[in-house]
Amino acid sequence: MNEFQKYLSKRVLFAIVSVLVIISFDFFLFRLMPGNPILIDYRSPALTRQQIEALSKQFGLNLPIWEQYVLFMKNTFEGNFGISIFYKQSVSSVLFPALYNSLILLLPATIIAIFLGIFTGKFAAWRRGSASDGVVTGTSMAIYSIPTFWLGGIFILIAIKTHAFPVSGMYVTGAVYSSVFAQLSDLLDHLVLPLATLTLVLFGQFTIIMRNSLIDVLQEDYINFAKSKGASDRYILNKHAVPNAELPMISIIAVNLGLTVGGAILTEVVFSWPGIGFLIYSAINARDYPILQAAFVIIAIVIVLANIIADILYSYLDPRIRYQ
């Protein structure tokens, strides 16, 4: 095994342990809280007698806590998260469509924000210390400080006043579509405001990250050496500086993924976007603890996976790790 493989397997091992710890956390958090909310939930009169018996058996609700823990682990790995108290159907049949809806919002927002952030970060870093750098950096810090849930509200206010875009949900309620395109255009209409909110908030953050990574790189000797070769500013920036600045950016973005998800949750709640964040919000109000328990695990696993992908991407792009 070479260094690179050792490094990767260490990361994968850490990911697996993280997931196990997260699931354990999830179990004890809900069982050990005052009143054992899961037990109360699963005896809720909202469920049928049959459902309660099935759950009792599956999760061993009458067994000692350690046996419940083992059963919980097993069920989680099988994708079996129990039954939602509010929806009265299996948690996974509610959770996975919501996760999919979340990605429709989160992925484009992240990608657009990263590209815009690289662009403005480059602009500011190259002019560091100048007035235009001050404006870009100041604006980015300001955007970064805007509360997501407030910005969304302002957008809603404006949209309602101008009748510009729908402010809630993914589709017009009860709409019947003549074609796939009609449905898609309705989706895009609904996507505009939440996408704008989330992209804007992430954009400020990514600009600052890119600017700072670039400023770091621009001090390196190889940048000066490239200048002494007669390279133009644009050439140095694009060929030497940006590729080297993107490496730390990848890890910082991966590490900040938890924050990104936080922003997405708030955006979903503001615009009633039927993603996993909105699901969590509704579940809190409905005291639907099985949903909360599962949503936590799923989000954590997605983030751990994204970190692994970032690790692999990083080591692929950096020859210092690739060839050891």
């Binding site: 000797d221 190889y222 000066n224 050496f225 490239a226 002494s228 070769k229 030497h240 590729p243 020859p319």
Partner: peptide, 14 residues
């Protein structure tokens, strides 16, 4: 042309 001090770092690692 120029040969820098600290040539170790004069080369782009990528």
């Amino acid at each position: 042309s120029l040969v820098f001090q600290g040539a170790m770092n004069s080369l782009n690692p990528l």
